[in-house]
């Protein structure tokens, strides 16, 4: 059979055209524009070489802080979501009452809008009348009450904590699927050999869940580098100078003030990194696919 005839090229055309024009092309054009003086006020485009990238990477601007914030956010949330997600997954694949209820509740924040969660936590973490501080005071733990979102000390940690709260259920769900796919034969054999619960985790669950862990890490990294809604709703980059500013909130601000070239340069830095890193991530994600 002639495969090209039965499975014709035009079946792929719609997806490829839409994806290329509205997704990939802006990335490419963006790289081009980052070498110009493009702004809301420029009447004609002028080539300015590496000027925008010099601005982005210069020490006296806040951009290096923004880039490091994004990396710290990604690193910290990835590690804690993975650790907590694994812990919860192990717990919720054991005999616990209302197992499915627990799984459902912990997973629920993942389907709600990140923006709405951010707005809600703005109230919960309010320094004066927020639920968290009121609760701490009523328990006699008033000394623990902090200005969670408006002090430079705690703001970044709070933003990461809320994001971990939101994302851990998703990671847990993937890990549960991973754990459940491990054959029970291994556990039975281990039990006969007298392995305790820690030994069973160390020598069976953990090694066999590593591929799943790799995928959740990839998903967390992809999400972390692109985080926007959560930070925008909680702090919008504040308090003070770029305490919680991440790449996408900075790009949005540049867009708002009409400094398109700097905004697109910031985006392009991430685009080029992800183009390179993404290739390996995609290879990892497609490794399970059956190719006949």
């Amino acid at each position: 059979m002639n495969k090209n005839k039965i499975y014709p090229w035009y079946f792929m055309a719609g997806a490829l055209v839409l994806y290329f024009v509205l997704f990939f092309l802006p990335g490419l054009i963006g790289v081009g524009y980052s070498f110009t003086n493009w702004s809301a006020y420029s009447t004609e485009l002028r080539f300015v070489g590496l000027d925008n990238f010099r601005t982005v990477f210069s020490a006296d601007e806040n951009y290096t802080k923004i880039i490091s914030n994004t990396l710290v956010f990604t690193f910290v949330t990835t590690i804690i979501k993975n650790a907590l997600g694994l812990l919860l997954a192990i717990l919720l694949t054991k005999s616990v009452r209302f197992l499915n209820l627990h799984r459902g509740i912990v997973f629920m924040p993942s389907v709600l809008s990140t923006l709405i969660i951010g707005m809600l936590f703005k109230s919960i973490l309010d320094a004066k009348s927020g639920l968290l501080n009121t609760f701490l005071r009523s328990c006699g733990l008033g000394f623990l009450a902090q200005k969670w979102l408006v002090s430079t000390e705690f703001a970044f940690g709070s933003v990461m904590a809320v994001d971990i709260w939101r994302g851990v259920g998703y990671i847990m769900t993937i890990m549960i699927a991973g754990i459940l796919s491990i054959s029970t034969d291994y556990y039975e054999a281990a039990e006969i050999d007298g392995a305790g619960s820690f030994a069973r985790f160390r020598y069976i669950t953990f090694p066999l869940i590593l591929p799943t862990l790799a995928t959740t890490t990839v998903l967390n990294i992809i999400y972390g580098l692109k985080v926007f809604d959560m930070v925008y709703a909680l702090t919008n980059g504040g308090p003070g100078k770029a305490t919680t500013e991440v790449l996408y909130t900075a790009v949005f601000k540049k867009f708002g003030t009409g400094q398109y070239a700097v905004g697109t340069a910031l985006s392009s830095v991430m685009f080029l990194i992800m183009l390179f890193v993404g290739y390996f991530m995609i290879r990892l994600m497609t490794r399970n696919e059956v190719i006949e």
């Binding site: 997704f23 990939f24 963006g30 790009v251 540049k254």
Partner: peptide, 8 residues
């Protein structure tokens, strides 16, 4: 994995 360049 790719980020969207909203500006462009």
């Amino acid at each position: 994995t790719l980020p969207i360049n909203y500006v462009a």
